[in-house]
C-alpha cells in the first residue's frame, strides 16, 4: 500500500497549549479520497468541550469517514485534525494517546464475541493500559450498571439483544476514559423499540458533559440533544447551526430536500 502524503508536522502548537476554551476537536479543510473517489472535499468544523454535535446527511456523504478520521482509523490526504490541540494527521502519531482520548461506538456494535460483556469492557484497560485488574473490574461493573446492564456481566454478546450489545459497546468505550465520544450511526442496526434504550444512554452521557459527536439518522433525537447540527452532502458541509434554527429555516435547497424526505 502506498504511503499517503502526509501534512507537515505542525510545531507551532504543542499539546500543552490546549486549554478548554479552545475547541477540543478542531477539523480544518480535511480532504479524503478512497482511490479516485473523493469522500471529503474540505470539511471544517470545531467542537467545544461538552458539546454535542450531530452530523446528518444522505448516505455516502462522508459522515462516517469524517468520524473515522478523528481517531485516525482512516488517514487523510490534506488538512488538519486536532484533538485537544494535538495534530492527528502526522506520521509519528501517538495512537495510544489519541485513542485513550477518543472513544468510538459503531453501527454493528463490534463486540468481541468470544468474551463476556464484562470482559469486553475490561479488555482494553487491562491489556492496553495495563491497569490493575481489581480496579478495572470495579469500574467495568460500574459502567455496565450505568448503561443499565447489571446482571448481564457474564452474558456473551450472542446472548444479548442489539440494544444491549450496543450499550455494552458504549460501556467498553467509556472504560478507556475518553474525553470525546464518537457515535457512528449507533442505532441504525437496531429495531425501533431498542433504539430508545441506546438513545437514553447517550443522552445521559451528554447531560454529564461528555463531548459527543454523532452521525445519526434519528432527526428527533438530534434536534433534542444536539448543540449544533451539521448537514453534509457530497463530502462538504452544506449547512450548519443550532437545531432550532437548522430544522426551522434551512436555507440550502439540498438541506431542505433532505429534511422534507426525512421529517
Amino acid at each position: 500500500m502506498a504511503q499517503p502524503v502526509l501534512a507537515k508536522e505542525t510545531v507551532d502548537q504543542p499539546e500543552a497549549a490546549w486549554t478548554p476554551d479552545r475547541p477540543i476537536v478542531e477539523i480544518t479543510d480535511v480532504h479524503k479520497a478512497f482511490g479516485p473517489v473523493e469522500v471529503l472535499k474540505g470539511v471544517s468544523l470545531d467542537v467545544m468541550k461538552g458539546d454535542v454535535v450531530c452530523i446528518i446527511g444522505p448516505s455516502g456523504s462522508g459522515k462516517s469517514t469524517l468520524l473515522r478520521c478523528i481517531n485516525a482509523l482512516v488517514d487523510i490526504q490534506k488538512g488538519s485534525i486536532r484533538v485537544e490541540g494535538q495534530e492527528v494527521h502526522v506520521p509519528k502519531l501517538d495512537k495510544l494517546a489519541l485513542r485513550k482520548k477518543v472513544g468510538m461506538v459503531f453501527q454493528q456494535y463490534n463486540l468481541f464475541p468470544h468474551k463476556t460483556a464484562l470482559d469486553n469492557v475490561m479488555m482494553a484497560p487491562l491489556k492496553v493500559l495495563k491497569q490493575d485488574r481489581r480496579d478495572v473490574e470495579g469500574r467495568a461493573r460500574e459502567l455496565l450498571a450505568k448503561v443499565r446492564l447489571t446482571g448481564k456481566e457474564a452474558s456473551y454478546p450472542g446472548e444479548l439483544s442489539g440494544g444491549q450489545q450496543q450499550r455494552v459497546a458504549i460501556a467498553r468505550s467509556l472504560a478507556m476514559g475518553p474525553d470525546v465520544m464518537l457515535f457512528d450511526e449507533v442505532t441504525a442496526a437496531l429495531d425501533p423499540e431498542t433504539v430508545k434504550e441506546v438513545l437514553v444512554t447517550i443522552r445521559q452521557l451528554a447531560e454529564e458533559g461528555m463531548t459527543c459527536m454523532l452521525v445519526t439518522h434519528e432527526m428527533g433525537f438530534a434536534r433534542e440533544i444536539a448543540d449544533h447540527i451539521y448537514f453534509t452532502d457530497h463530502g462538504r458541509i452544506v449547512e450548519h447551526g443550532p437545531p432550532a434554527e437548522f430544522f426551522q429555516n434551512a436555507q440550502d435547497p439540498r438541506t431542505k430536500e433532505f429534511l422534507s424526505q426525512i421529517l
Partner: peptide
C-alpha cells in the same frame, strides 16, 4: 469491524491479532 473496534480501543495490530482475531 473487529479490527476497527480493536484499533479504536488502542489495541495495536499484534495485540488485535493474538487477543481478538485468532481466538475467534
Amino acid at each position: 469491524g473487529q479490527w476497527e473496534s480493536s484499533e479504536s480501543l488502542a489495541f495495536n495490530r499484534r495485540q488485535t491479532l493474538f487477543m481478538i482475531i485468532l481466538p475467534q
